[in-house]
């Protein structure tokens, strides 16, 4: 899944890592936006072998966007703001 930036692109750049690789995002992005607009494709794998997941509700309800952020532990990517230097792992 690739989020397409349509508006408000004139923002400061943030640098995150996903599984150790660098990923650029914009200030004001959620972790979900940072990852899915940044080309991560998905956020987690289903525990039941049915493939990738990339969130669903984007409003903190479905819990299908869990990722792990160093220092914060397991978070909902859609309900967590991205910060410069964040180290993210897929959930």
């Amino acid at each position: 899944m690739k989020l397409v930036r349509l508006r408000d692109t004139d923002r400061a750049t943030l640098h995150l890592t996903l599984e150790g690789s660098g990923l650029a995002a914009l200030e004001g992005d959620t972790v979900l936006t940072a990852l899915l607009a940044g080309g991560a494709g998905h956020l987690r794998d289903s525990e039941f072998g049915d493939g990738h997941r990339a969130g669903f509700c984007l409003m903190g309800a479905c819990q299908d966007c869990w990722v792990v952020v160093e220092g914060l532990g397991r978070v909902r990517a859609c309900a967590t703001l991205a910060k410069d230097g964040m180290k993210v792992r897929r959930g």
Partner: peptide
């Protein structure tokens, strides 16, 4: 459940 599907509210 495929990446790329969201709720209407999510979109």
């Amino acid at each position: 459940t495929l990446p790329g599907v969201t709720t209407m509210g999510g979109a």
